[in-house]
Design a protein around this nucleic acid. Structure first.
Lengths: 158, 158
DNA sequence: CTTATATATTTTATACTTGAAATATATCAC
DNA sequence: GTGATATATTTCAAGTATAAAATATATAAG
């Protein structure tokens, strides 16, 4: 056999693969921990937290399809989550004059209050979980993830 | 009202939160893309790829519980995945002399061959997806994720 | 106005995951 | 050996996700 004509997998390629495996592992570990605490301390879930977070940033409310686009999950999924949040009195559906197909989903005062509590605890948890990363670490990773994020969005759908 | 007695959320705390949100977003985007390609190009799934990857690194085979521990997923989940891989002829269950409770799961020759193909494509995909990150970026993030990973494991279960 | 098409959401069928219960086997203390 | 306990796996019920079909409403062309 002669030396391979095609380029061998570069070290950089292997290091990128290792990076992805570590990124995925860390991400899953943190996500599991956040889910665990949301359930244990607030009897809630990550999807519900995400929906309330999106609504908290939109005081005028959001349509179902807007929520699913923001959160990148399916429409049917949002239906179930909003149904549950409605039952719990966290959100309500407000009719849109002139369009009976859609409603605006808004946080109720109680939903707003609960979310503030949850969000504050959530930030604390993340601060603990990422305590190992100092200011420079965080700045360095934020910078690189910004670039990666742009590339991911640019190269893909939005 | 007087000035708050408790410490205000530090900038670092906020930056850690932003980092987590970016990490999660990037991780999900990459994971979705990998799932999409595994399905489109090989008619396979990420869980199946993960199981085959674990088995590829263990030539003598692994017990069900060893797989679920390595992959950090439930036992029942592994049962279903290995059942499907068995139907497809990718893996087989080998009896362990002296312990009729457990079997060793091993890749078949075809499973090994398929996995090599999938793993090679997978490394290529990741190399493309992370193309925005150069050698220094990758090295810097690998270093920091190593530290974070140790902290996550040390502070948690294993 | 009526048909065609576009938009917004819900419903349905399917798949994946977990945690707990059930089953089977092994090991230990006596 | 027998009973108690530990280990290994599978089965099952419940929760959550997606994609596609179904439903309802809106808009545009003629």
């Amino acid at each position: 056999m002669t030396a391979p004509a095609e380029q061998p997998a570069s070290d950089l390629s292997k290091d990128r693969l290792r990076l992805w495996l570590k990124l995925l592992k860390a991400s899953r570990a943190i996500e599991d921990e956040v889910r665990r605490r949301l359930r244990a301390e607030f009897g809630s879930t990550l999807p519900r937290f995400d929906v309330m977070s999106a609504l908290d940033r939109a005081p005028d409310g959001l349509k179902m399809s807007e929520i699913s686009k923001l959160l990148r999950v399916s429409n049917g999924n949002i239906t179930g989550i909003v149904d549950k949040l409605t039952d719990e009195g966290m959100v309500l559906r407000v009719a849109i004059p002139g369009d009976r197909r859609a409603h605006l989903v808004r946080l109720t005062p109680m939903g707003k209050e609960k979310f503030r509590t949850h969000a504050s605890a959530h930030q604390q948890w993340i601060n603990e979980i990422l305590a190992e990363l100092n200011f420079d670490d965080v700045a360095g990773m934020n910078l690189r993830l910004d670039r990666l994020g742009e590339a991911l969005e640019g190269g893909a759908d939005d």
